[in-house]
């Protein structure tokens, strides 16, 4: 067991962890932050995406011990301080960018770093950035649209040719 200390959604936490404890297990089992989901075991689906030191990483492919001292962000920390949806979350709701909701936390976390790195991404850039976020429900149409809308772009003409 190793002691790790990190900041999760702005709150400092310290816990004894097993060496083989993944961040997904740390968040879900130790901190009861169950918004981070596990959709595969080959590091491809992105349902587990979280932020570590401001970057999106797969929570299922990083050990808790590797996050000692890190700033960690999860879906539970994304809403505005008053509990209302942030701009990206709101755009997902406005544009029906989610159905079953299982991949959604990972999508929102990816979208957040995308827009930080690239505030006005094109459709192609969004689709490329979502390479590691698999959604089985939406067909991606409304996810891409929501991210474009969250970046302030006009989406009213999409597919209305």
């Amino acid at each position: 067991m190793t002691k790790v200390t990190m900041t999760v959604n702005g709150k400092s936490v310290s816990k004894e962890v097993r060496g083989n404890m993944l961040m997904t297990e740390f968040l879900r089992d130790e901190l009861h932050l169950t918004g981070t989901h596990v959709g595969c075991d080959t590091s491809q689906c992105g349902a587990c995406n979280i932020h570590v030191n401001g970057e999106t990483v797969k929570g299922c492919t990083i050990f808790a011990a590797e996050c000692d001292g890190a700033e960690v962000g999860t879906i539970e920390g994304q809403a505005n301080a008053d509990g209302t949806l942030n701009v990206i979350q709101q755009a997902f709701q406005d544009h029906h960018g989610l159905q079953c909701g299982f991949c959604t936390p990972g999508m929102v976390m990816s979208a957040a770093t995308l827009l930080k790195e690239n505030p006005k991404p094109t459709e192609a850039e969004i689709r490329h950035y979502l390479e590691g976020n698999i959604c089985r429900c939406t067909g991606y149409h409304n996810i891409v649209k929501a991210i474009m809308a969250a970046s302030g772009q006009d989406v009213s003409t999409i597919a209305a040719e």
Binding site: E76, Q89, Q93, L98, G101, T104, V108
Partner: peptide, 8 residues
């Protein structure tokens, strides 16, 4: 959506 978007 509100619960799904907030991890709830």
């Amino acid at each position: 959506d509100v619960r799904f978007l907030t991890g709830a």
